[in-house]
C-alpha cells in the first residue's frame, strides 16, 4: 500500500510519454503502452503537464497531443504538413467521388511517394510551390517523414505510408480555417457595400 499524497505523479512511462509529446508527437492506440497509460491516468497526466506549462489535449477519436499555449512558439513546419494533407484530401474527394466516407478514405489506404497527386496536376504543383521549396519527390518524402515524426502518419512498408487517426485533426483545422476565411470575406463584403 502507498500514501496517495506523493504517489499521484509517479506515473508509468512518464518520461517516455513526456518526451514524445514534447517533441510534437501525437500518441494514439498504435503507440501501445504510452497511449494505454495516458488513457488510464489521463487526469493525472493532464494535471501534471499543466503544472509544467503544457496543455495536454485529449481527442475523443482516440489520441493525445500537446497544444501550444498562448505565447508559446509553434513549429512553422507544420503548415506545410497541413497543405500537403489537404491536397491529398481534395484529390481523393474529386477522384474517388466520395465513394466512401472521407475519413475512411484517408485512413484505410496507403500511398507510395510516386502515387501522390501533388506533382500530378499543375494546380497542386503551384500550391506546393508556395511552401518555400520547389516541389519534387524528395520534398514530398521529407513531408511524409515529418508527418511520421509528429504521429500523423506511419510507414507501412519501406516505400509506403498511411495516415494515423491524429491526421484527422487536419480536417478539423481545415473546417475551422475555412470558416474564418468565409467570415473575413463576409466582413469585407459588408464593408465594401457600406457607402
Amino acid at each position: 500500500m502507498t500514501s496517495t499524497e506523493t504517489s499521484r505523479f509517479a506515473l508509468p512511462y512518464l518520461a517516455e510519454i513526456f518526451a514524445e509529446l514534447a517533441r510534437g508527437r501525437h500518441l494514439c492506440n498504435e503507440d501501445g503502452n504510452l497511449y494505454q497509460e495516458l488513457q488510464e491516468h489521463e487526469a493525472d497526466f493532464e494535471q501534471l503537464f499543466q503544472q509544467l506549462g503544457y496543455r495536454l489535449m485529449t481527442d475523443e477519436r482516440g489520441f493525445y497531443y500537446f497544444h501550444a499555449l498562448e505565447g508559446q512558439n509553434v513549429s512553422p513546419q507544420t503548415r506545410r504538413l497541413a497543405v500537403f494533407f489537404l491536397v491529398l484530401v481534395e484529390a481523393l474527394w474529386s477522384e474517388a467521388g466520395g465513394a466512401e466516407p472521407l475519413e475512411d478514405m484517408i485512413l484505410d489506404r496507403s500511398w507510395s511517394i510516386g502515387e501522390l497527386p501533388h506533382l500530378g496536376r499543375q494546380r497542386y504543383v503551384e500550391i506546393m510551390g508556395q511552401l518555400e521549396k520547389e516541389p519534387d519527390e524528395e520534398m514530398l518524402r521529407e513531408e511524409v517523414k515529418r508527418l511520421v515524426r509528429f504521429g500523423f502518419a506511419a510507414w507501412s512498408s519501406d516505400e509506403r505510408f498511411r495516415f494515423r487517426v491524429p491526421a484527422l485533426r487536419f480536417l478539423d483545422i481545415a473546417r475551422e480555417v475555412a470558416a474564418g476565411l468565409e467570415a473575413e470575406e463576409g466582413e469585407a463584403g459588408e464593408e465594401a457595400e457600406t457607402p
Binding site: Y54, Y65, A68, N73, V74, R79, E126, F170
Partner: peptide, 20 residues
Amino acid sequence: VRREGVSGLNLERHIGVLVM
C-alpha cells in the same frame, strides 16, 4: 494558398505543435 501563399492562414497556430 495558391493565390496568396500559406503564411496568412496561421495554420501552424491551429495545429499548435510546440517548437522542438
